[in-house]
Protein backbone atom coordinates (compact mmCIF):
# COMPACT_ATOMS: atom_id res chain seq x y z
CA UNK A 1 0.00 0.00 0.00
CA UNK A 2 1.11 3.55 -0.61
CA UNK A 3 1.94 5.76 2.34
CA UNK A 4 0.84 9.33 2.89
CA UNK A 5 3.20 11.61 4.81
CA UNK A 6 2.91 15.28 5.67
CA UNK A 7 5.89 17.13 4.25
CA UNK A 8 4.73 20.67 5.12
CA UNK A 9 2.35 21.92 7.79
CA UNK A 10 1.53 25.44 8.91
CA UNK A 11 -1.85 25.72 10.63
CA UNK A 12 -4.27 23.88 8.36
CA UNK A 13 -2.10 24.48 5.30
CA UNK A 14 -0.56 21.08 4.52
CA UNK A 15 1.27 19.23 1.80
CA UNK A 16 0.79 15.47 1.98
CA UNK A 17 3.01 13.28 -0.18
CA UNK A 18 1.51 9.96 -1.23
CA UNK A 19 4.62 8.07 -2.15
CA UNK A 20 6.13 4.77 -3.10
CA UNK A 21 4.11 1.59 -3.05
CA UNK A 22 6.30 -1.49 -2.57
CA UNK A 23 3.26 -3.74 -3.22
CA UNK A 24 2.44 -2.29 -6.62
CA UNK A 25 2.80 -4.57 -9.66
CA UNK A 26 6.29 -3.85 -10.95
CA UNK A 27 5.17 -3.44 -14.54
CA UNK A 28 3.62 -0.10 -13.44
CA UNK A 29 5.96 2.85 -12.97
CA UNK A 30 5.84 4.08 -9.37
CA UNK A 31 4.38 7.55 -8.87
CA UNK A 32 4.07 10.21 -6.19
CA UNK A 33 0.87 12.13 -5.64
CA UNK A 34 0.78 15.36 -3.64
CA UNK A 35 -2.25 16.66 -1.81
CA UNK A 36 -2.30 20.35 -0.94
CA UNK A 37 -4.88 21.16 1.75
CA UNK A 38 -5.83 24.55 3.14
CA UNK A 39 -8.89 26.03 4.84
CA UNK A 40 -10.96 22.84 4.51
CA UNK A 41 -10.26 22.53 0.76
CA UNK A 42 -7.77 20.33 -1.06
CA UNK A 43 -6.19 19.87 -4.46
CA UNK A 44 -4.52 16.66 -5.63
CA UNK A 45 -1.53 16.94 -7.97
CA UNK A 46 -1.17 14.24 -10.65
CA UNK A 47 -3.67 11.77 -9.11
CA UNK A 48 -2.13 8.87 -11.01
CA UNK A 49 -3.29 5.99 -13.14
CA UNK A 50 -6.50 3.97 -13.05
CA UNK A 51 -4.77 0.90 -11.61
CA UNK A 52 -3.38 2.69 -8.55
CA UNK A 53 -6.59 4.55 -7.64
CA UNK A 54 -7.39 2.27 -4.64
CA UNK A 55 -3.87 2.69 -3.20
CA UNK A 56 -3.93 6.51 -3.58
CA UNK A 57 -7.50 6.86 -2.29
CA UNK A 58 -6.82 4.64 0.74
CA UNK A 59 -3.58 6.43 1.63
CA UNK A 60 -5.28 9.85 1.48
CA UNK A 61 -8.22 8.51 3.48
CA UNK A 62 -5.81 7.72 6.32
CA UNK A 63 -4.86 11.41 6.54
CA UNK A 64 -8.04 13.34 5.72
CA UNK A 65 -11.50 13.02 4.27
CA UNK A 66 -11.13 12.72 0.46
CA UNK A 67 -14.49 14.51 0.12
CA UNK A 68 -12.54 17.72 0.76
CA UNK A 69 -10.70 17.35 -2.57
CA UNK A 70 -12.25 19.97 -4.85
CA UNK A 71 -9.76 19.83 -7.66
CA UNK A 72 -7.14 17.82 -9.47
CA UNK A 73 -4.06 19.27 -11.12
CA UNK A 74 -2.69 17.38 -14.11
CA UNK A 75 0.85 18.49 -14.98
CA UNK A 76 0.37 16.94 -18.42
CA UNK A 77 -1.62 14.28 -20.28
CA UNK A 78 0.18 11.00 -19.64
CA UNK A 79 -1.78 7.94 -18.35
CA UNK A 80 0.33 7.65 -15.17
CA UNK A 81 -0.70 11.26 -14.43
CA UNK A 82 -4.44 11.35 -14.95
CA UNK A 83 -6.00 8.10 -16.24
CA UNK A 84 -7.74 7.68 -12.83
CA UNK A 85 -9.82 10.78 -13.60
CA UNK A 86 -13.08 8.87 -14.22
CA UNK A 87 -12.88 7.20 -10.79
CA UNK A 88 -12.19 10.50 -8.99
CA UNK A 89 -15.20 11.99 -10.77
CA UNK A 90 -17.22 8.91 -9.81
CA UNK A 91 -16.34 9.69 -6.20
CA UNK A 92 -17.05 13.41 -6.55
CA UNK A 93 -18.71 14.41 -9.84
CA UNK A 94 -18.19 18.18 -9.42
CA UNK A 95 -14.42 17.87 -9.00
CA UNK A 96 -12.51 20.22 -11.34
CA UNK A 97 -9.36 19.37 -13.21
CA UNK A 98 -6.74 22.05 -13.90
CA UNK A 99 -4.49 21.32 -16.84
CA UNK A 100 -2.79 22.98 -19.82
CA UNK A 101 -5.30 24.23 -22.41
CA UNK A 102 -3.41 22.05 -24.85
CA UNK A 103 -4.80 18.87 -23.26
CA UNK A 104 -8.40 19.94 -22.60
CA UNK A 105 -9.61 18.01 -25.65
CA UNK A 106 -7.39 14.98 -24.99
CA UNK A 107 -7.70 14.22 -21.27
CA UNK A 108 -11.55 13.95 -21.54
CA UNK A 109 -10.85 10.59 -23.22
CA UNK A 110 -10.13 9.43 -19.65
CA UNK A 111 -13.41 10.95 -18.37
CA UNK A 112 -15.05 14.24 -17.44
CA UNK A 113 -17.27 16.69 -19.27
CA UNK A 114 -17.24 20.36 -20.28
CA UNK A 115 -17.62 21.44 -16.65
CA UNK A 116 -14.69 19.36 -15.43
CA UNK A 117 -11.74 21.08 -17.04
CA UNK A 118 -10.16 24.41 -16.18
CA UNK A 119 -7.69 25.25 -18.96
CA UNK A 120 -4.41 26.82 -17.90
CA UNK A 121 -2.87 29.32 -20.33
CA UNK A 122 0.75 28.87 -21.43
CA UNK A 123 2.01 31.50 -18.99
CA UNK A 124 0.33 29.76 -16.04
CA UNK A 125 -2.36 30.94 -13.64
CA UNK A 126 -3.17 31.34 -9.97
CA UNK A 127 -5.12 28.49 -8.39
CA UNK A 128 -6.77 29.00 -5.03
CA UNK A 129 -7.06 26.21 -2.47
CA UNK A 130 -9.04 27.75 0.36
CA UNK A 131 -7.08 30.90 1.33
CA UNK A 132 -3.84 29.58 -0.20
CA UNK A 133 -2.77 30.82 -3.61
CA UNK A 134 -0.80 28.44 -5.77
CA UNK A 135 0.85 29.34 -9.05
CA UNK A 136 0.88 27.08 -12.11
CA UNK A 137 4.54 27.31 -13.19
CA UNK A 138 5.18 26.81 -16.94
CA UNK A 139 7.40 23.85 -17.80
CA UNK A 140 6.43 23.31 -21.44
CA UNK A 141 8.45 20.69 -23.33
CA UNK A 142 9.68 19.26 -20.00
CA UNK A 143 8.74 16.74 -21.12
CA UNK A 144 5.24 17.31 -22.53
CA UNK A 145 4.57 20.15 -24.99
CA UNK A 146 1.92 21.46 -22.59
CA UNK A 147 3.47 20.96 -19.15
CA UNK A 148 2.90 22.83 -15.89
CA UNK A 149 4.31 22.56 -12.38
CA UNK A 150 2.63 23.91 -9.25
CA UNK A 151 4.33 26.41 -6.97
CA UNK A 152 3.26 27.15 -3.43
CA UNK A 153 5.08 30.42 -2.54
CA UNK A 154 3.99 30.29 1.09
CA UNK A 155 5.21 26.74 1.67
CA UNK A 156 8.19 27.25 -0.70
CA UNK A 157 7.39 23.96 -2.37
CA UNK A 158 7.26 23.14 -6.07
CA UNK A 159 5.46 20.14 -7.49
CA UNK A 160 7.78 19.56 -10.45
CA UNK A 161 6.07 16.75 -12.38
CA UNK A 162 8.63 14.72 -14.30
CA UNK A 163 11.45 17.21 -13.67
CA UNK A 164 13.56 15.77 -10.89
CA UNK A 165 12.08 12.30 -11.42
CA UNK A 166 14.28 9.32 -10.65
CA UNK A 167 13.61 5.70 -11.51
CA UNK A 168 14.75 4.19 -8.25
CA UNK A 169 15.37 0.49 -7.58
CA UNK A 170 12.46 -1.24 -5.82
CA UNK A 171 14.37 -1.49 -2.53
CA UNK A 172 14.99 2.29 -2.33
CA UNK A 173 11.95 3.93 -0.83
CA UNK A 174 13.25 6.90 1.17
CA UNK A 175 10.94 9.92 1.05
CA UNK A 176 13.77 12.45 0.66
CA UNK A 177 17.02 12.42 -1.27
CA UNK A 178 19.76 11.69 1.25
CA UNK A 179 22.78 11.22 -1.00
CA UNK A 180 22.45 13.51 -4.03
CA UNK A 181 25.34 12.03 -6.06
CA UNK A 182 24.05 8.50 -5.61
CA UNK A 183 20.43 9.49 -6.25
CA UNK A 184 21.06 11.54 -9.38
CA UNK A 185 22.46 8.51 -11.22
CA UNK A 186 18.88 7.17 -11.24
CA UNK A 187 17.62 10.47 -12.67
CA UNK A 188 20.21 10.96 -15.42
CA UNK A 189 18.95 8.54 -18.07
CA UNK A 190 15.36 9.64 -17.51
CA UNK A 191 16.14 13.34 -17.99
CA UNK A 192 18.37 12.77 -21.01
CA UNK A 193 15.65 10.79 -22.77
CA UNK A 194 12.40 12.40 -21.62
CA UNK A 195 13.42 16.07 -21.68
CA UNK A 196 13.72 17.24 -25.26
CA UNK A 197 14.17 21.01 -25.37
CA UNK A 198 17.42 22.70 -24.33
CA UNK A 199 15.95 26.29 -24.47
CA UNK A 200 12.94 25.19 -22.41
CA UNK A 201 15.24 23.55 -19.88
CA UNK A 202 17.47 26.65 -19.53
CA UNK A 203 14.43 28.92 -19.15
CA UNK A 204 12.90 26.62 -16.50
CA UNK A 205 16.18 26.45 -14.55
CA UNK A 206 16.54 30.24 -14.53
CA UNK A 207 12.95 30.86 -13.40
CA UNK A 208 12.92 28.05 -10.85
CA UNK A 209 16.23 29.07 -9.26
CA UNK A 210 14.62 32.41 -8.36
CA UNK A 211 11.68 30.82 -6.50
CA UNK A 212 13.66 30.23 -3.28
CA UNK A 213 12.36 26.69 -2.82
CA UNK A 214 12.67 24.52 0.25
CA UNK A 215 11.54 21.40 -1.60
CA UNK A 216 11.26 20.19 -5.16
CA UNK A 217 8.69 17.40 -5.35
CA UNK A 218 8.82 15.21 -8.47
CA UNK A 219 6.20 12.73 -9.63
CA UNK A 220 8.63 9.79 -9.54
CA UNK A 221 11.32 9.10 -6.93
CA UNK A 222 12.47 10.98 -3.84
CA UNK A 223 11.92 14.63 -2.89
CA UNK A 224 14.80 17.14 -3.03
CA UNK A 225 15.05 19.43 -0.02
CA UNK A 226 17.31 22.19 1.23
CA UNK A 227 20.61 22.51 -0.64
CA UNK A 228 19.69 19.53 -2.87
CA UNK A 229 17.09 21.72 -4.64
CA UNK A 230 19.75 24.12 -5.94
CA UNK A 231 22.09 21.19 -6.57
CA UNK A 232 19.44 19.58 -8.76
CA UNK A 233 18.72 22.80 -10.71
CA UNK A 234 22.44 23.28 -11.41
CA UNK A 235 22.85 19.63 -12.40
CA UNK A 236 19.86 19.83 -14.74
CA UNK A 237 21.09 23.11 -16.29
CA UNK A 238 24.37 21.39 -17.22
CA UNK A 239 22.84 18.11 -18.42
CA UNK A 240 22.83 17.35 -22.12
CA UNK A 241 19.24 16.36 -22.92
CA UNK A 242 17.21 15.13 -25.89
CA UNK A 243 19.41 12.08 -26.36
CA UNK A 244 18.59 8.46 -27.07
CA UNK A 245 20.78 6.06 -25.09
Amino acid sequence: MKRAETIFEQGDHRWIAVTRDPERPHHLIDTNEYLIASGGHALLCDPGGLEIFPAVFAAINEQLDPSGIDALFASHQDPDIISSLALWLEFKPDMRCYTSWLWCGFIPHFGGDEQTFVPIADDGMTIKVGPTELRAHPAHYLHSSGNLHLHDPEAKLLFSGDVGAALLPNDESALFVTDFDRHIRHAEGFHKRWMGSEPAKRDWCERTAKLGLDMLCPQHGAIYQGADVERFINWFAELEIGRVG
Binding site: L50, F53, P54, F57, A58, N61, S67, L87, E90, F91
Partner: peptide
Protein backbone atom coordinates in the same frame (compact mmCIF):
# COMPACT_ATOMS: atom_id res chain seq x y z
CA UNK B 1 -16.97 -3.99 -14.61
CA UNK B 2 -13.38 -2.70 -14.78
CA UNK B 3 -14.20 0.17 -12.40
CA UNK B 4 -15.92 -2.36 -10.10
CA UNK B 5 -12.86 -4.62 -10.06
CA UNK B 6 -10.57 -1.68 -9.25
CA UNK B 7 -12.88 -0.40 -6.50
CA UNK B 8 -13.01 -3.88 -4.93
CA UNK B 9 -9.32 -3.42 -4.16
CA UNK B 10 -10.05 -0.52 -1.80
CA UNK B 11 -9.21 -1.44 1.80
CA UNK B 12 -12.24 -1.76 4.11
CA UNK B 13 -11.89 1.69 5.73
CA UNK B 14 -11.56 3.40 2.36
CA UNK B 15 -14.54 1.37 1.07
CA UNK B 16 -16.69 2.83 3.83
CA UNK B 17 -15.64 6.35 2.78
CA UNK B 18 -16.28 5.57 -0.90
CA UNK B 19 -19.60 3.86 -0.14
CA UNK B 20 -21.75 6.01 -2.44
CA UNK B 21 -19.29 5.55 -5.24
CA UNK B 22 -19.34 1.74 -4.92
CA UNK B 23 -23.15 1.68 -4.81
CA UNK B 24 -23.38 3.92 -7.89
CA UNK B 25 -21.00 1.68 -9.78
Amino acid sequence: ALSGRILERLPERAQRRAGGMLARN
